[in-house]
């Protein structure tokens, strides 16, 4: 869906995926974003750029995510953190959108900590088809990395052990009270942002991106040098420790922040061990 023109409603696609009724508007609604995977033999490498200059803390993303993915109360897949700093009258307040970083994993093994922690990984081989029809094989698991970089959860395989929840340094994972773990129905399945894979796989941008009025969220393919994310990463030099969260954890996050005011350092609250209460969206 590289068509940049806003399409007719009648042409819009409908998507479904494993019981989640996911429906998407046109990806093309956001100018400049191309969801066309690069014309290469490689799979796309999906990534998100968060332009902190543009986030106005409106929470449309938070609610769009709740709605799109039917996220239960008490947990979030996407949140905004806000923090007030300084002393009156030199007070500042800033907003920081957070979500799963869809980490690449460390240089050595390329496996993110959540995937590493999953007892069901590595599981059976699975196949991923690229845009040009090439098949890439990868290892499945209850939590696994798809060749296009998305870190996904297979709730049928999940045994509800919660190890991935503990392993994620960003604390973006939680148990879904409405979905039983397929591998152990006495437990609940783990859940987190899947970058709206059901939309992306059908050429539609994630729901949070679609709704962002400031265009603070830019989604696209890093393997495509012409994609907006690639251009932004280059233009703003985002592939640095300063432009991702918790670089020191060697997770290689794929959510990059345009952060000219160095807000990440002051804004980001890291989770405390064993706690997820930092990953909620609250307005004081």
């Amino acid at each position: 869906m590289s068509d940049k023109k806003a399409p007719d409603v009648s042409r819009r696609k409908f998507l479904t995926d494993a019981g989640v009724a996911a429906v998407g508007a046109a990806a093309a609604a956001t100018p400049g974003v191309s969801l066309q995977a690069a014309e290469s033999k490689k799979a796309p490498r999906w990534a998100m750029v968060m332009d902190l200059r543009r986030c106005i803390g409106c929470r449309a993303c938070t609610v769009a995510c709740k709605s799109e993915n039917r996220v239960s109360l008490g947990r979030f897949r996407a949140v905004i953190q806000e923090k007030t700093t300084g002393t009156f009258p030199n007070t500042k307040k800033a907003f920081l959108p957070l979500m799963c970083n869809h980490c690449e994993g460390n240089k050595k093994d390329g496996v993110p900590p959540c995937v590493k922690a999953c007892p069901e990984y590595p599981g059976a081989r699975a196949k991923f088809k690229t845009a040009d029809g090439k098949t890439i094989r990868y290892r499945s698991g209850a939590t696994y990395k798809r060749p296009d970089g998305l870190i996904l959860i297979d709730k049928e395989k999940c045994i509800g052990c919660g190890k991935c929840i503990d392993a994620c340094p960003y604390g973006v994972r939680s148990f879904d009270p409405f979905v039983k773990a397929g591998g152990d129905p006495s437990k609940q399945a783990a859940d987190k942002c899947d970058m709206c894979a059901h939309r992306v796989d059908n050429g539609v941008e994630p729901s949070c991106v679609n709704t962002c009025q400031g265009r603070a969220r830019i989604f696209g393919d890093l393997n495509d040098p012409d994609s907006q994310v690639s251009k932004l990463v280059k233009e703003h030099n985002l592939a640095t420790p300063e432009n991702v969260l918790l670089h020191e954890k060697d997770t290689n996050p794929h959510v990059f922040y345009i952060d000219p005011d160095n807000l990440l350092k002051t804004l980001y609250t890291q989770r405390k061990k064993g706690k997820l209460d930092h990953f909620v969206d609250q307005i004081v």
Partner: peptide, 27 residues
């Protein structure tokens, strides 16, 4: 979907909203 409203999004052809909808609207 099946007679149930499942999602609200901005109208991409609107010259006013440019396809955007706020948190309140989506709820």
């Amino acid at each position: 979907e099946d007679g149930r409203v499942v999602k609200l999004e901005g109208h991409p052809d609107s010259i006013r909203t440019l396809g955007k909808l706020c948190a309140k609207g989506q709820a």
